[in-house]
Structures are given as structure tokens and as C-alpha cells.
């Protein structure tokens, strides 16, 4: 099953929010772009018309316990393990509003991904998490064959996706394999992004003729430079 948008347009109060969008959601996707480029609008459309849960920083909770908020009793063993791993040391019978901010973020994410949907989107929320928690969640989604979209200002997130779409003023201005998009240095910098450290370092070392390739692995690059 996949979600395909062809020449999709969205206009609100006479303003074109999304223009001629061609989008294929059948793998893990990064959606990047400047502020007001249409990223959240696209995720909201997918949420409303295709039931793709949009997970964003939203601390409005509807139940009096964490347990009820994520319907813990209905979760399978693997899902319960994830809750216990991510919310370790948390008593699930406490009120969600009593959680620390970091745990509230995790609760938002757990609510979104534990509803047995085949798709999910993260609207600039994964960046709040420490790397190990983010990797844990994405590994779980891959194992469960749940496809995800990540909206983020951190280009390191592209390493966790297959395809990247770049939005600008409501239009897709580039798309392709995430690893290839990461090498679009001029375009990414023009939009205001910072390249991931290892790509930036490799490109600069290439300019100095110190290496010939792009290295994503620090140890390999260190061994290449200091044999």
C-alpha cells in the first residue's frame, strides 16, 4: 500500500500553500525546507485525508494517567517493552501533566506510533530527543514496517530515510535518494541548512586534496588521514 499525490494543490484564503505536489509515500521520507515552505501543511493534509498520524510537540493530554493516555492495557508485548524502555523510571499511573518535558515529548511520540497505523509523520519533534532514543524509535518503526516522514531542520535525519523532498514556497524544488540530496551542497546552503558534520568535513578535505571520497564513518576517515 502506498500514498500517491499527483499535482496536488492547496489554497487557503487565496494563498497557494501547496503547489503542484507530486509525492509518493511508500518508504521512509525526509521533508525539508525553510519556514513556511509547506512542510506542516503537507503533513496536515496527509493526516486529514489519509489518516497518517502527525506527531508534533503538543502537551495536551486527555487522560489522568500515562497508562490510559497510551492505552497501555491494549498494547502487545513488544509495544509495552518500548514504553517501558523509553519511559524508564516513570510510574505509568501518574498524571501525564506531571511528567518532565523530555518525557512528555516521548509520550507524544508513543501515542502517535502505538496506534497500529502503517504510516506516521514526525513534525519537527524527533530533534528534542537524545540520539539513542531517536534511533530506538526509528529502529522499532523499521522492524514493524511502519513508514515514516521526518520533518526536521537537522540534515542528519536524512541518514534515517530513503527519499528526501525539498519544499520551497509550497513547491517541491528537489527530490531524490536522501544520500544524494545530502551532496547538493549549494542548494542546501542557499536554503540556510548546515551540512552534516562528516559530509561538510569530507567536502572541505577534498577541496584541500587531502582525501578523494566522502566519508560518513569517522573511524575510516581518521584511519585514512592518520595511517
Amino acid at each position: 500500500m502506498e500514498i500517491v499525490l499527483q499535482n496536488y494543490n492547496k489554497n487557503i484564503n487565496g494563498v497557494d500553500i501547496l503547489k503542484n505536489i507530486n509525492f509518493n509515500f511508500n518508504c521512509n521520507i525526509s521533508l525539508i525546507g525553510t519556514s513556511n515552505s509547506g512542510k506542516t501543511s503537507l503533513l496536515k493534509f496527509l493526516e486529514n485525508d489519509y489518516n497518517v498520524p502527525r506527531i508534533y510537540k503538543n502537551f495536551m493530554f486527555f487522560h489522568s494517567t500515562v497508562e490510559d493516555e497510551i492505552k497501555y492495557i491494549l498494547l502487545n508485548t513488544k509495544q509495552k517493552k518500548m514504553v517501558n524502555d523509553l519511559l524508564k523510571d516513570i510510574n505509568l499511573s501518574i498524571n501525564p501533566n506531571m511528567l518532565k518535558n523530555n518525557d512528555k515529548i516521548k509520550l507524544c511520540i508513543l501515542k502517535g506510533i502505538l496506534n497500529n497505523n502503517n504510516y506516521v509523520s514526525f513534525d519537527n519533534i524527533l530533534t528534542y530527543l537524545p540520539l539513542k532514543d531517536k534511533e530506538y524509535i526509528l529502529k522499532y518503526l523499521k522492524q514493524e514496517h511502519i513508514n515514516y516522514i521526518i520533518v526536521s531542520n537537522d540534515l542528519n535525519d536524512l541518514f534515517n530515510t530513503d527519499i528526501t523532498y525539498i519544499l520551497n514556497e509550497g513547491s517541491i524544488i528537489a527530490s531524490g535518494a536522501s544520500q544524494k540530496i545530502l551532496l547538493e551542497e549549494k542548494l542546501l546552503k542557499r536554503l540556510g541548512f548546515t551540512l552534516p558534520f562528516m559530509i561538510d568535513l569530507s567536502l572541505k578535505l577534498k577541496d584541500y586534496n587531502l582525501i578523494k571520497d566522502i566519508y560518513l564513518d569517522k573511524e575510516l576517515l581518521v584511519n585514512k588521514l592518520w595511517k
Binding site: 558534520f197 561538510d200 568535513l201 572541505k204 578535505l205 584541500y208 587531502l210 569517522k218 573511524e219 576517515l221 581518521v222 584511519n223 588521514l225 592518520w226
Partner: peptide, 25 residues
């Protein structure tokens, strides 16, 4: 990266800026 390089006996300072690191490398 700098800490890893030092384990390989690279003489690098406590860089926080990538352009300074390049010069150091």
C-alpha cells in the same frame, strides 16, 4: 572526531569550528 583522531596520535587542539579543524588537520 577530534577525540578519535587523538587516539590515532593526531596532534589536534580543542576545536569547535570546522574551518579551524581543517587547518589543524
Amino acid at each position: 572526531f577530534v577525540k578519535l583522531a587523538r587516539k590515532n596520535h593526531a596532534k589536534l587542539e580543542d576545536y569547535t569550528d570546522i574551518n579551524e579543524l581543517i587547518k589543524g588537520i
